Amino acid sequence: MSLLLRKRGFPKEGELVVATVKETFKHGAVVTLDEYGDLEAFVHISEVSLKWVRNISDYLRVGHKTVLKVIRSDPEKLQVDASLRRVSKKEQAEKMMEWSRRVKVSKMIEAVMKETGTPLETVVSGLIEPALDRGREVHELLEEVASGEELPSWVKLPPEFAERLVERARRELKRPTYVVKAVVKMTSRFGGVERLRKAAEEGMSVGNGQVRITLIGSPRYMIRVEAGDRQQAEEMLSQAIERMKSVLSGPGDELVVVEGPGGGS
């Protein structure tokens, strides 16, 4: 698997992951997680379907990709349990669409590397790692470039590589969407991580997979909204923030916009 497709860290409980079926057994299946360096995970037969499963291969076929939900995660033991039955059709479609976008951008970057003779290490240190440090997905960043934005100043790539990458992105990644972002500070003294997770889930329930919320570094979170035009994107951002505030409404709860519309900068 290309290093350009890898995520940092270890899969978290509740996370949707792209998996390739490696082996099936009577009582379950072993899969590899494409975004985590082919880390293995186990899917018990009880997590395959709500219906009675006569043959697990009817649902999980060796060599095929699918979307699973992580239900148990132990980084120390490098053990992951995942579920197929807990993934909705909507989640399956949206995750595979995102995966396709990431694969397309990865192939595009690899093509530019070949054209310019740029080593992988240069791209990782100048683009991939800085993006991950800021809670950014590289495919989303380049889609924004395709829509007319410039590469951020924190991207440190050789001039020829950067120029060709921007040219290819604007030629190949046509996304008729407007993107608006905000950074919020979220805390919950008594509700803890669980309440913050619920607040993020409530915010992401706005729209049809158009709102994404990622942790930048506690207690700061980035809200990213994609829509057909600026007005729609800003309205959806406003709705997402209001829904998050409705969850964080108890004593010791706080949500403050620190960057973006209505924020401090």
Rank of each mutant, 00 (worst) to 15 (best):
M244K: 04
P119A: 05
G260A: 11
E98Y: 04
R86M: 15
S106Y: 10
V206G: 00
L78F: 13
P176T: 06
K26Q: 15
V62L: 03
E259W: 09
E35S: 02
E254G: 13
E47Y: 09
A182T: 04
H139M: 09
E115P: 00
E235G: 07
L248M: 15
P75R: 05
V193A: 14
K181L: 02
V112E: 03
R61W: 07
D38A: 10
M96I: 01
R6I: 01
L196G: 02
I241A: 02
K198C: 07
W99L: 00
G28P: 04
I213L: 09
T66G: 02
S106K: 12
D34P: 01
G14E: 08
I213K: 04
K245Y: 06
F42P: 09
M96K: 03
E40M: 06
G191E: 12
E137A: 13
R224Q: 14
P158L: 04
L78P: 01
M244V: 06
V67C: 08
V87Y: 05
V103T: 11
G263S: 09
V155P: 00
E160P: 03
K104V: 08
V67E: 00
V105S: 10
V155H: 01
K89N: 14
F25K: 11
K181E: 14
V184Y: 06
V21K: 03
S188A: 11
L78E: 15
V155N: 04
K198H: 13
Q239F: 04
V87T: 04
D253C: 06
V225E: 08
V138P: 01
Y59M: 06
R85I: 09
F161W: 01
V67L: 03
Q232Y: 05
L16A: 11
Q79C: 06
K104A: 11
E129K: 15
R101S: 13
R54L: 06
G135K: 01
R212V: 05
V70H: 07
V247L: 12
I109N: 09
R175H: 14
G14H: 09
I241P: 01
P251R: 14
H44L: 13
T177R: 11
L3C: 03
S265Y: 14
L132I: 11
M96V: 02
E259H: 12
R61L: 10
G263K: 07
S153Y: 12
G191L: 12
E144F: 03
R197V: 13
V80H: 01
V80I: 14
E47R: 05
R195G: 10
T187Y: 04
S88T: 15
V256K: 15
P11N: 10
A146G: 12
R224V: 12
E140N: 14
V18I: 15
V193C: 02
L60G: 00
M97V: 11
V180Y: 04
L237H: 02
S57E: 15
V123Y: 09
R243A: 07
S265V: 15
W52D: 03
R230W: 03
P75W: 11
M204V: 11
G250H: 12
